[in-house]
Design a protein around this nucleic acid. Sequence first.
DNA 1: GTTAAGTGCAAGTACTTACTTGCATAACGC
DNA 2: GCGTTATGCAAGTAAGTACTTGCACTTAAC
Lengths: 193, 193
Amino acid sequence: MNRSPEDTRLRLLAATRTLLAAKGRRGTTTREIADQAGVNEATLFRHFGSKDALVDACVEYYCRTVELEELLASLDGDLERDLRRIASALMQRMESVRDLIVMSLAEENGNGTVGEAAWRAPTAIKKIVADYMAKRIAAGELSGNPLFLARFFMGMVFSYVMGRKRFPEEYAAEPAQVVDFQVHMFLNGARKG
Amino acid sequence: MNRSPEDTRLRLLAATRTLLAAKGRRGTTTREIADQAGVNEATLFRHFGSKDALVDACVEYYCRTVELEELLASLDGDLERDLRRIASALMQRMESVRDLIVMSLAEENGNGTVGEAAWRAPTAIKKIVADYMAKRIAAGELSGNPLFLARFFMGMVFSYVMGRKRFPEEYAAEPAQVVDFQVHMFLNGARKG
DNA sequence: GTTAAGTGCAAGTACTTACTTGCATAACGC
DNA sequence: GCGTTATGCAAGTAAGTACTTGCACTTAAC
């Protein structure tokens, strides 16, 4: 097996992520992580020192980048299209950290290391949304409190992502359709006419 | 100490609930539960046999009733008022099982005993919402798919309840105001005019 | 008053699990 | 070739934790 130390490290991080998502921090043993990564348990400790340090490194690794410049650059002023782009980006990010978010919510200290990292991208996007809302309110296109609107917008996507986790059989629709629906509801509501 | 066995049982159930909410199933020890309940650990096992049985009994106990007749009876046909009542009832129920929901989401088998019980009331309310939406669509007051609308409505409340858990400092508004805002958004959206 | 049930207490068992350690080995840089 | 580094392997340690058990005590029913 030609595995560099860096490779070993990455395999451990990946295995950690998978197992954390499935069984939580306390439900996951270092033995399992090592097995899943295909390395010896001792190697795990030689790399990371402790289980907690491994978990921290794992979360940090998978939440390290935010990179929203592309999203910001893609916004062109068309209200509906912009909101769809934002919702789509948000949905993607949230899906990718979904299980970490759940894990942090379930932990004693929900805003500890894991909680902070998992919410990093969503929080960054929330700021973008709030700013965007403020602009559109100023332009007379939307009405309400920009912060409340941003929160509502976040919540729409969040609840969808969580709903898919808990009731996957009910959520068969294409992401694009979901985004369309959510943006439509956000802008126009369900009232007829 | 004049404590009946029934009293002991209830104290244990209450302590279990508190600790489960704070530290999760695996993070909570039977020793802790007994201490918090003010009884001996041996008594805990004499009552419930095992930790898992205690957790099941606890969840079952706190999710045992649904009782939505009162809510149903209070609906009088005024669209906005009805939705506010439904949202308010839903919010209350979800708050009360919030931590159990989080716990079940974080567990390996999210739709096991805990998951089923925790979602029991919300699921029942979701059916009411879907039926209600269908009626109002038929009456020409709403437009869309009743199931999607119901899901969206549930999500609004769910994300608020979870948001309050994770970011309590941001959610200072009165529940009544929140409900008003949510129902307004649900019906009319954020678009001006 | 006697009995039975419920409980506290203290000790103990069996298992899991994070973490360590000493040694052999294989690869890689020099 | 030689040393360094990363790893596997096997054994072990220490702590935590679910769960048990035997005994003494209280309480309340009869």
